[in-house]
Write a protein that binds this DNA or RNA. Sequence first.
DNA 1: GCCGTTTTCGGCCCGACTGTTTTCAGTCG
Length: 555
Amino acid sequence: MENQKLAQMFDKIADALEIKGENRFKIIAYRKASQILNNLTSDIYDHYQNDELQKIPGIGEGIAKKIKEYFETGQIKKLKEAFQGLPESLLDLLSIPSLGPRTVALAYQKLKVKNLQDLEKAIRNGSLASLPGMGEKKIDNIMKGIEFLKKALGRIPLGKAFVMVNELLKELSGWEEIKQISPAGSYRRMKETVGDIDILVTSDDPKKVMDQFTALDIVARVKAKGPTRSSIETDEGFQVDLRIVDDTSFGAALQYFTGSKAHNVKLRSLAKDKGLKINEYGVFKDEKYVAGKTEEQVYQALGLEFIPPEMREDLGEIELAQKKIPRIISYDHFPGDLHIHSTYSDGESSLKEIVEEAMKYGYKFVGIADHSKSVKYAGGLSIEKLLEKNDEIDKLQKQYPKIRILKAAEVDILIDGSLDYPDHILSQLDVVIAAIHTGFSNDPEGRILKAMDNQYVHIIAHPTGRLLSQREAYNVDMDKLLEKASRSKKAMEINAYWDRLDLNDYDCRKAREHGVKLAIGTDSHHISGMWQMVLGIGVARRAWLTKKDIYNFDI
DNA sequence: GCCGTTTTCGGCCCGACTGTTTTCAGTCG
């Protein structure tokens, strides 16, 4: 599918136009087109073939023309044009928090700053400080931004990896040469960020598999190619390793390459104690193979219960597996999502679409939570609009009796800690999610604490602020929040958004210490984003949460 | 660039915050 590729191209055009200071609405239009393409569940090529591009809301004459041009000539002239007299490396600078297009443009024009190295130099020799409107604090913030970016570089947010890996698995599973397939590594353990992506397969025709793999569309560079392991870099800069192993070793290899390193070290030492040897080929006793076909067999051979990948960090799971692994929350058993945005605010799916999709997932309930009235940029709902939406939910509920449709809202915690809807409105909602979206430096902790006093609030979303900006988090004392949440019986939300996870497994463990329930909400803005639930549950599993740790709407 | 229209042009989301200013520009969500 070319959806993502086109989306990237439009995003790049938007970036370039932004640096050039073009009409901001034009830029918004390109960004929107990019977002639409990213979220589209169908293949854009089909729309092109049926001459129905402009039927997609947000795609007009200009964008449609460019999509056509792309399918007919393989390129978009506008992209080149947008970069006329602009080095492409400037785009990297845009991802530095607190450094925006105006400053990038200025630094380029006045100081010839073209990339990160130039920028750092300009900071060191003081030339950046000489630019108009550039003071000590701004420079300081840019330096912090650079530091933040460098730390994040080279690791992929789980959400991004998830989408890519799934597409790749879908493609590879279709090859008849491949018999078994599984992702491994930190991706399989559902770490918050993933270094590179490991995929393990078994095959009778390794050469053909490797030939096809290194010739995939997404390949930008082949870093290594051999009969058992090939390594490629995708056009988005991700490294993907494909390993081919024997059927008899598949489980052992999967175990080995899933890690973590600490987990494997502990496992090997345990094996040694039992007079066994374990490596990526299998479990051996006196050089004789005893297990390795499946992971279950590997763990069994060591006298252990199967350990879910998300738990494999040597945090006591091996000791537990010698007796009884706790029954952590399972993907299959999760009953619903409480935090989905609809077209009423800034979501892209109608109530009906959300409900129908949720039923496909087998959800028992779905909470449709739109923004509250003060969040203007996200189309927050006036009270009238909220009530109108509630009426529509009532009607839908009659139409779909098998799923419980919850009247929810993501209600803003205002600057003074009060909530964006009055109590008599909140009381009409099934689920009230309180969250901060503005005034991040204005005592978020105090405001969240105050919001917890409201009897109608059920859930606190983005308590650490990770979702809100690229800045790391806002300064809250989690223990303090959790302590109060525990007293006031509020749940904290594990928010698994596209490129960020709000609560991590450490936060979740702390929540459990305090006896605070956790709500898993996707905060998705499109039905195609409901996979984010998998990430949220992944985090819950990493924290070894069981069903009773999870906030469940009482149905 | 998109969209709707009193149909070919004008509005498009907007406010807060920060740091720099002395009334505003840039960045962010």
